[in-house]
């Protein structure tokens, strides 16, 4: 029994091979497949393209032709193709006749429209076309070759461009709107900053320095580190002189600062006070001593008085200007 089955299988494989062997070498065209010839009848199977986008249909065409009248052969059956990674959408057939070299040629065309299912390779297995020779009454069949088609990325739908344009226009409008808002806000901030700067420029610097003095030399703190406080006081005085008289006081020594103030026509009393604050602070800062609280308070008051006096003068000057 087993031997019989094996013989049938081998015979089947051989007969299939022989059927396929009838097919000549593949056509060099992109989609045409070799013709299958049986006596006077010839068959050609082709696909519309070797590569098809996922969202486009593929046309599979079987063309059977022979010389003579259309009635010479009768196509009794064309099986639906067995496809992989495709689904058949529709099929159609047509007949026509044409004269070739003075001879009449009958052509029958069967078309199958199919849609790809997913990216990758798709296959159309061999299709059996059965026919009857009306002269002899014999029934025969032809088999198309297996075809392979690559399913590629989908292409844009002609209708989708409109949507894209809509989005682009919307995006541009949004960008313009965003830029306009940003620009407006920036101008607003700039305006506010300018106003603040103008206000700050109008305000005498002494106000700020009085605040800084209180913050950096907190005399009400009983644990105040005197040496540091002297350093802070002297630094603040130097910063104030730099800003007020445009002297490079922070990079100058006390002697240089005093000489600079003298050249700037600064009132004598202010020069004397500055000299006293800086010299006394220098002694504490550089001599290794700790300094006395009472002395610090006196110097603090001297600087405070200096700021107050200059503040009054600045306010008077501003009042006169306005």
């Amino acid at each position: 029994m087993k031997i019989k089955i094996s013989v049938f299988l081998i015979a089947g494989i051989l007969s299939f091979s022989l059927l396929n062997a009838q097919a000549p070498a593949p056509d060099s065209g992109s989609s045409a497949q070799p013709d299958t010839i049986s006596s006077g009848i010839k068959m050609r199977a082709s696909v519309s393209s070797k590569e098809v986008p996922l969202n486009r249909p593929l046309i599979f065409t079987i063309q059977v032709e022979w010389f003579g009248e259309l009635s010479r052969y009768e196509i009794s059956e064309v099986e639906d193709p067995v496809v992989r990674n495709f689904t058949i959408q529709s099929n159609s057939s047509s007949d026509r006749r044409e004269m070739v070299d003075g001879e009449l040629k009958a052509i029958k065309t069967f078309e199958f429209e199919m849609m790809p299912l997913e990216l990758g390779m798709g296959y159309i297995e061999g299709v059996i076309v059965k026919y009857i020779d009306t002269v002899t009454g014999e029934g025969k069949h032809l088999v198309t070759n297996r075809l392979e088609v690559k399913v590629i990325e989908p292409v844009a739908e002609p209708g989708s461009r409109k949507g894209l344009i809509k989005w682009v226009v919307l995006f541009i409008i949004l960008v313009i709107l965003g830029v306009a808002i940003f620009w407006g806000r920036k101008k607003q901030i700039e305006k506010r900053r300018r106003q603040e700067e103008e206000a700050a420029a109008m305000a005498p610097i002494e106000i700020d320095y009085l605040k800084q003095l209180k913050a950096s030399v907190p005399l009400d703190n009983p644990d105040l580190h005197l040496k540091d406080a002297y350093s802070q006081l002297s630094h603040l005085v130097k910063k104030y002189l730099t800003e007020k008289y445009e002297l490079p006081a922070t990079t100058a020594t006390t002697e240089e600062i005093i000489s600079g103030l003298k050249q700037n026509d600064v009132p004598e009393s202010l020069i004397n006070n500055t000299e006293e604050i800086l010299n006394k602070s220098d002694v504490v800062k550089f001599s290794g001593g700790e300094g006395e609280r009472a002395e610090l308070e006196r110097l603090y008051t001297l600087f405070e008085d200096m700021l107050d006096r200059n503040l009054k003068e600045s306010k008077t000057a501003l009042y006169k200007e306005s």
Binding site: T253, T254, E255, E256, D282, V283, F286, S287, G288
Partner: peptide, 10 residues
């Protein structure tokens, strides 16, 4: 003077 000041250095 018994201590150095920035004036001496400069």
């Amino acid at each position: 003077r018994g201590y150095v000041t920035p004036e001496d250095v400069r």
